[in-house]
Amino acid sequence: MTTKSTPGRKQAPAADNTGTEAAARVADVLLLFAGGPQYLGVSAISRELGLSKAVVYRILQSLVSREMLATDPGVSGYRLGPAAAALGASALRRFDARIVATPILRRLRDETGETTTLSGLVGDERVYLDQFESPREIKMTVEVGRRFPLYAGSSGKVILAFLPEERREVVLHRPLTPLTDRTITDEAGLRAALAEIGREGVAVSLGERQAGAGSVAAPLYGPDGEVHGSISICGPQYRFTPEAIERYRDLIRTASQEIRDNWTWLRAGES
């Protein structure tokens, strides 16, 4: 049988498609470890990604051989290995936003006495990239590298509020699973909250993502004018009084603009 090709369109070899699909599967497996529990087994990965156990097992063994994943004696499942940790550390060192944000977030930590954080946008979620811990005995800390939804908490909502409309709509049309009893889970309520954030340029959360935690966040804009993440001031909710929140609003706005200006200057200097 003769296969006819569409005029003017170059057909990719089947092997290319197969290679692309295989690479995507490997990436999907690694991303599960980035956002999920510390240990994952073959069955759990198979269910989550809809792949056969045989395929998952082959991928895992390949990643273990390259130290991207590892196993521990007496523990069922796989965890991220030293090569993955080295890759992540290298990425953070080379991330422009982290370079320019670090001194500003340290200063913000010293000015407020609370923990300050940097989050990056990853797909339709966010991940903590760095934190500068409060010197206080009672403080809030975050799990760097863990992924969170955009609809819960100030760091996520402020990103969601300033995403392009088509990307925002994708998130809003998904089920909104509550993380605490204060998480906004109805679409209309979340849309109203995002509209207010759009007007104010700042998001506030009191126990929405983590019970007992308060935070104020601002978007992290890149030189391209797009939102790439967020910065926040966070701590125990009882310290986030109306007076403190109002002060933090002004501080986080100024810090956000300063990071944007410095990032733009850094990129201009590299070109």
Rank of each mutant, 00 (worst) to 15 (best):
G235L: 07
V64D: 05
F132K: 04
D124K: 04
T6V: 14
L30D: 03
A213P: 04
S62H: 02
V56R: 05
L176M: 01
Y221G: 06
R146L: 12
L176E: 03
H228M: 10
G123V: 02
R94S: 14
S46L: 01
A244D: 08
V142Y: 10
T2A: 08
Y238W: 02
S154I: 12
R136P: 04
S90I: 05
T254V: 10
R147H: 15
S119R: 05
A213V: 15
I159M: 10
G222E: 06
T141W: 00
G41S: 11
N17T: 00
T71M: 10
P149R: 12
T180G: 08
E196S: 13
S134N: 00
T177K: 12
A91S: 13
T254L: 06
L129V: 01
R94Q: 14
G207L: 11
S43Y: 05
L69N: 07
G235A: 10
R267S: 07
A22N: 10
R106C: 03
Y57Q: 12
R174Y: 00
S46R: 05
N262Y: 03
L172A: 09
Q61M: 08
L172D: 03
A192E: 14
G156L: 08
R239Q: 10
G50Y: 08
P13I: 00
R199F: 08
T254I: 07
L150S: 07
D28Y: 06
E196I: 13
R9S: 03
